[in-house]
Amino acid sequence: MKYVLLFVETEEFAAELEAMGPAERARAFGRVDEWFAAHAGKVTGGQKLRDPGTATTVRLEGGEPVVVDGPFVEGKEVVSGYAEIDVADLDEALRMVRTWPGCPVVEIRPVETGPLE
């Protein structure tokens, strides 16, 4: 089954990352690279996203589209990246996520695969 892992950052995590020295930060990124390398066969895509300060949200629910500065939910937890994975089932996705060395929250979302699902 295909899933998207949504990587979610918290304010504390961002502050921790900010407070790191360059060597320490390089090590932290290195751990994330290692994780992607270890799961290379399962990861089919994904990107790190720029910080939520760069986000723009468009609301189309009223008549005229409304363009707003910022992410779609203002909160302490923001999506910071995503990965597409192809694994047997939710348990395999859970096993992968359990060793994720990056941000402190990950949402696992199955991908809609067909009109009959």
Partner: peptide
């Protein structure tokens, strides 16, 4: 069904 929860007994480690 839709999230792919498997029908199995977990492995030893889990």
């Amino acid at each position: 069904t839709r999230a792919g929860i498997p029908y199995r007994v977990p492995d030893d480690e889990e």
